[in-house]
Amino acid sequence: MVVAERKPLNELLEMVQPYKKILVAGCKGCVTVCNAGGKKEVEILASELRIARKKEGQEPDVKEITLERQCDPEYMDQLTEVIKDRDAVLSIACSVGPQYIAGRFDDKVVFPGLNTTFIGGSLEHGVFAEFCQACGACGIHNFGGLCPIARCSKSLLNGPCGGSSKGKCEISKEVDCVWQLIYDRLNRLGQMDRLTRVIPCKDWTTSRDGGPRKTIREDLKL
């Protein structure tokens, strides 16, 4: 999933400060799963905004909505009515959400309520880690199913480096050296010979080097 985290409240209060009628818009996709921008988080943020406004002696006018997803044009329709009388929208989807809202509703000011951090998964309840950097040409089968691009601090394809110590990366004792994990796993699989294969240089044109990316599925287009 896309993992994101809430921006600090003060930052958000400053963003929406000039606007009276606010809409807090959540998303039932990835950010619900990583507990950053689902229905529950919308309720909490809206309540925080109302308390802050009441404290300033203002009458709060904050509406709430949580869309099925904020990354599909058809779900943007769910905003049409509720957004009409709003001065500003605070979207707590990943950064795709506020961009979709900005694209659809020309006259509305949109703010991102989250910092979109990475593509990852949960390690345990409340703990999320990065697993993919969306390089666009997955080659993890060469590395025992583990991604050295996302999970090695240097994105080395021929690690480990000298900073690997007792299975940990030199950047932090909390971070596993993925190259240690790769060696251990290939050893268990009896596939250590994979690491002796000569692999051509990685083609980064599928990554950001080729500019903004697009996927077209002709079979799905209407």
Partner: peptide
Amino acid sequence: VDVIHLLNAIE
């Protein structure tokens, strides 16, 4: 008891 219940009371 959730965060929102306590916030609602404050609100």
